[in-house]
């Protein structure tokens, strides 16, 4: 007679909060930061449409210490988001074969991060130049 009685262990309900999954959860949460930043910009657009008074209020909000701290936090989250995004990039595409050999994933991530950083710098310079 078979003694089989397979036992299924329940998953920990907090698996996402502990290593090795914590970095993944953090990465996914930075998506919320991206959404919040989008909302801040959208809020500015709405204020612009409402008229000069509302837009001045928006600018005053941007200059407030709360807004500056918020933007620093959002920037940190965005940087983490970008880096982890490019770390995931090689996983999401077909194997790249260069000179008959698979192109190293790490190199792909490095190039993407450098291009991303370069584009951001150019954007920043354009923004500074336009805002002069």
């Amino acid at each position: 007679m078979s003694e089989r009685r397979p036992y299924r262990r329940p998953m920990s309900p907090t698996w996402w909060a502990n290593p090795p999954y914590r970095a993944y959860t953090l990465r996914e949460l930075t998506g919320v930061a991206v959404a919040i930043y989008g909302l801040v910009l959208f809020f500015g657009l709405v204020c612009l449409a409402l008229g000069p008074g509302a837009y001045d209020g928006y600018l005053a909000f941007l200059r407030s210490p709360f807004s500056i701290v918020l933007h620093l936090l959002l920037l940190a989250a965005m940087v983490y988001h970008v880096v982890t995004w490019f770390e995931t990039l090689p996983k999401t595409q077909p194997k790249l074969i260069v000179d008959g050999k698979p192109f190293p994933a790490k190199k792909m991530t490095d190039i993407a991060i450098k291009v991303g950083a370069g584009c951001s710098l150019v954007l920043l310079l354009i923004a500074i130049w336009v805002g002069r």
Binding site: P20, Y21, Y24, K91, T92
Partner: peptide, 21 residues
């Protein structure tokens, strides 16, 4: 795209790449 599957793979198969592509 948790990616931990590829980290623990003893043969560097990178199964996360297979799933995501």
């Amino acid at each position: 795209a948790v990616g931990y599957c590829s980290e623990v793979c003893p043969k560097q198969v990178d199964p996360a790449n297979a799933v995501n592509q």
